[in-house]
Simulated assay, not measured.
Amino acid sequence: MPVRELIDAAETLARAQREVGNDLARRVETCRATVSIVRLLEACGEAQLGQVAAVLRVDLSVASRQVSQAVHDGHVERTVGTADRRVRTLRLTPSGHELAARLRTELAERAGITLGDWDTDELRATADTLRRLADAITTRTPGHPARTTDES
Rank of each mutant, 00 (worst) to 15 (best):
A9G: 08
E11I: 04
T12L: 14
T12E: 14
L13Y: 10
A14M: 05
A14W: 09
R15N: 12
Q17T: 06
Q17C: 08
R18Q: 15
N22T: 09
D23M: 07
D23Y: 08
D23F: 01
D23A: 15
L24W: 11
A25W: 08
R27A: 15
R27I: 06
E29T: 13
T30G: 05
R32H: 00
R32M: 11
R32C: 08
A33Y: 04
T34Q: 08
V35N: 09
V35P: 02
V35M: 05
I37R: 07
R39N: 12
E42L: 00
G45C: 11
L49W: 06
L49V: 07
A54T: 13
V55D: 02
L56G: 10
L56A: 10
L56W: 09
R57Q: 12
D59R: 14
D59Q: 14
D59W: 04
D59N: 13
L60E: 05
S61G: 02
V62Y: 04
V62P: 00
V62Q: 12
A63T: 11
S64K: 15
S64V: 00
Q66I: 01
V67H: 01
V67A: 06
A70C: 05
H72Y: 13
H72A: 14
D73G: 01
G74W: 12
H75M: 11
H75R: 14
H75S: 05
V76T: 03
V80W: 07
V80A: 13
G81N: 06
T82Q: 14
R85V: 14
R85M: 07
R88E: 13
R88G: 02
T89I: 12
L90K: 00
R91K: 15
L92Y: 06
T93D: 04
T93C: 04
P94K: 04
S95P: 01
